[in-house]
């Protein structure tokens, strides 16, 4: 396993590749500048995946959250969520933290919702990207609960995928690109929303004011 030296699979495969003598080739490097994205387009395109999109301001965040959490029994949040978001939350939240990690079974309880932020959002594809940074949590936090509320802050929306990749602070973090609720088209190519991931996805896009 992973062995080096003569006769190992590694050396043999690398030798076969060298023997193939593929001529050199270089791809042009795409531009690196990060283009801002339209939150209007973001909202439209997320909604087309049949996720619920709410555009709101700081002032009405509390009302928006109260409405989205109307049927929630357990609210889960990652560590590092901006405290002002929680202040506006009408119900008590259980925080997942390295010291007190929640188990998959706990997250799987009926009526569990998770509230997170995101690292960046992509307008053109209707995508939110989570990178496990503050306020986003471990991957299972946004996977096991049946309801995910994701907040997009002002200035987080970029135009397209290349912009999002460039905007991520550390590509080596675990990354999850979420474009609508989980879905399948495996039966007669009919799209069905909601298989294994959260069946309800709410994206809250916060305006500048």
């Amino acid at each position: 396993m992973g062995a080096r030296g003569p006769g190992t699979a590694r050396e043999e495969i690398l030798a076969r590749i060298a023997a193939a003598a593929v001529p050199p080739a270089r791809a042009p490097r795409p531009q690196a500048a990060i283009r801002e994205g339209s939150t209007v387009m973001l909202a439209e395109r997320i909604a087309e995946y049949r996720a619920t999109v709410v555009e709101c301001t700081d002032a009405d965040l509390a009302d928006v959250l109260a409405e989205l959490l109307a049927e929630t029994v357990h609210l889960v949040v990652p560590s590092g969520l901006p405290p002002e978001w929680l202040d506006r939350c009408s119900m008590d939240a259980v925080a997942d933290s390295p010291k007190h990690p929640l188990t998959a079974a706990e997250l799987d309880r009926p009526g569990t919702s998770v509230l997170t932020g995101c690292a960046v959002a992509i307008a053109r594809t209707g995508t939110v990207v989570l990178d496990g940074g503050p306020g986003q949590g471990r991957r299972l936090l946004t996977l096991v609960p049946d309801h995910h509320i994701c907040l997009v802050r002002p200035g987080q929306t970029v135009d397209d995928v290349p912009d999002a990749l460039a905007a991520l602070p550390d590509p080596a973090r675990p990354l999850t690109f979420v474009s609508g609720p989980s879905a399948t088209s495996d039966i007669e190519l009919r799209r069905i929303e909601g298989v294994h991931g959260p069946r309800r996805l709410n994206v809250v896009i916060m305006g500048d004011r």
Partner: peptide, 10 residues
């Protein structure tokens, strides 16, 4: 436009 989930891990 985009598939529901893309995972990248290192």
């Amino acid at each position: 436009r985009m598939n529901p989930y893309t995972s990248i891990w290192t």
